[in-house]
């Protein structure tokens, strides 16, 4: 055995894993080599010293702490896995499902308690929740990129409470700013749901002065006639005499003026 070989086996020697034959061979080398012998005794003392250190026993607290940590980790994991609230709101499918579910529950309870005098507080609370859900569906769909989705949002607006100002605001904004003619057209029609609000008529009149798409102008004129808004007369007069307005729009404005008088 060379000194090199002996050095690689020293740790095995100290931990007594060389085996009988290996140990005999190693000892033979130590007897013949003073350098190796001194190294083994020097480092070997340290090695044995390490052995004498008491082995740390885990206390009972370690176990408790571990389970506490695991619990916290699981909680954190669950929180992280739950989708962020915003994403949940903006998924129309979820909203539709939730709204439909609430409507169904509401109907079921409504039928169940029918004829028992005043509806209990739970029912009116449920009704309010259904209304909120419908508002949510309408508002979020109206902000989608897909024009078909926005159209769907507008049709949900029909189911909102006639006093719902947020849905009314979203509809007015759609009438004025939606890039798609068909969405604007549907939004004008849905405004009729809010005919009791004085804002509706004002918004329709304002929008009529801004719209340039004939079919949307015609729909707005219909709405103003329906709302019997006398303040619409000046704008209708302007349109009926406007050379840039579409022929059909001029006719319609003229017809509306006669109706409003």
């Amino acid at each position: 055995m060379t000194c090199e070989e002996a050095k690689t086996r020293m740790t095995d020697y100290w931990s007594r894993t060389l085996g009988e034959a290996g140990e005999t061979e190693f000892n033979a080398h130590l007897a013949s080599c003073e350098a190796c012998q001194s190294e083994v005794s020097r480092v070997g003392a340290l090695w044995q010293g390490l052995d004498l250190l008491p082995l740390e026993e885990p206390s009972g607290k370690v176990r408790d702490r571990f389970y506490e940590m695991l619990g916290a980790y699981r909680q954190g994991l669950a929180a992280a896995e739950a989708p962020p609230a915003k994403r949940w709101w903006s998924m129309p499918a979820w909203q539709l499902a939730a709204a439909a579910g609430l409507v169904a529950v509401g109907l079921g309870i409504g039928y169940g308690v029918r004829g028992n005098g005043q509806p209990p507080a739970e029912v009116s609370q449920l009704r309010e929740e259904v209304a909120n859900m419908r508002q949510l569906v309408a508002l979020s769909l109206m902000q989608q990129q897909s024009a078909s989705d926005r159209l769907r949002g507008v049709s949900w607006a029909y189911r909102a409470e006639p006093s719902d100002r947020e849905v009314l605001g979203a509809l007015v904004s759609a009438v004025n700013h939606d890039a798609n003619v068909n969405v604007r057209l549907a939004a004008v029609d849905a405004l009729r749901r809010f005919s009791a609000s004085p804002e509706t008529s004002r918004a329709a009149l304002q929008s009529l002065s801004k719209q340039t798409t004939p079919i949307v102008q015609a729909a707005l004129i219909d709405l103003l006639v329906e709302l019997k808004d006398p303040e619409a007369a000046p704008e209708l007069r302007r349109l009926s005499g406007s050379e840039t307005a579409n022929e059909g729009v001029r006719q319609k404005a003229q017809w509306a003026l006669e109706r409003l008088q």
């Binding site: 078909s148 989705d149 549907a186």
Partner: peptide, 11 residues
Amino acid sequence: PGKAMSFSTMN
């Protein structure tokens, strides 16, 4: 399924 549609024209 579930898609809203709209068709419109003036004349």
